[in-house]
Amino acid sequence: MRLMRAQLIRVWSIPTFLAVLLTGCAGDKSILDPAGRGAADVALVWWGMLGFFSLVLITVVALWLYTFRPRSSRARTAIEEKRLARRLILGGGVLLPVATIVVLMIFGVPAGQRMLPVPLGTPPDVIEVTGHQWWWEVRYPGAEGGEVVTANQVVMPAGEPVDFHVTGADVIHSFWIPRLGGKIDMVPGRTNRIRLEADSPGVFGAQCAEFCGTQHAHMQLYVKAMERSDYEAWLAERQVPTLETLAVQSDAHAPAREAFVEYCAQCHRVAGLAVPDSQWELAPIQGPDLSDIGARPTLGAGVLAMEEGAIGDWLRRHQQLKPGNRMPAHLGLEPRTLQAIGDWLETLSP
């Protein structure tokens, strides 16, 4: 990387050069700070293209400026003119682009191979992600002991490929973890697949990439890669029986649970709370499953950090924090009730 940067300094313009010096390529969502092999392949192609194309640009502009030099008046013969013109047009206009694109096709197209969900000897784990306005539903259909459901966070094993099966529940969204690889659209009615791999454990930023309406900006996804054993433990903690116990373990929160069933359970599910299925199906709109909300790093798909009291705060002010989001403003509910519900939800941390 350092070598590349040296090259950059020569060829890239001043503002960006300054910018590179100041913050470099690092970043939570930076394509240029790859943490997986798919993204690394693409980043490599980028640096190659940047170097060569900068050279092309500088050459063309320099040649252009060179033609404005003051010059002697010696006239060229018609044959000389023709030869020079032909060299420029055939060399610069035909040969250069053709050679460039042939090379680019041969070396560039394979850079995407790793992200294609082709069959493997051992089938990779599958994680299903569904885009909603404006949050992420995440499912682990292959978890031992039954499907695990969570929202706005993806936990994945590191060091091995994972297949993401994505779709959209309402409008088109786009699933993208920049440091791991390319994006894939979440289209209602279809399931698209992409294979991503994190080299080692870590936390990565992600955000909806296809414009999906009012709160497109606040549709963040928290991605965490873990060692295989940690990942399996994380899944095991989220088995339905465990979560059910968690939801009802403390009597102190019984009133909050009742309020939840009354006001929230139409749209939000918490494992272990008895809500008639019919009511669930009548839901005006589906909200995130909250069974493990206390263990999630953020609220509102990245609007607030999960801290003590944060859920209550969110329940009171969510239409100010994330204007236009699909949850009603809770104007008819006492702040006390909201805080109580929040306090209880915070305990749902397996």
């Binding site: 560039g108 994006k183 894939i184």
Partner: peptide, 8 residues
């Protein structure tokens, strides 16, 4: 270029 396009 398709793979680069997927990123940006």
């Amino acid at each position: 270029l398709v793979p680069f396009n997927w990123q940006v």
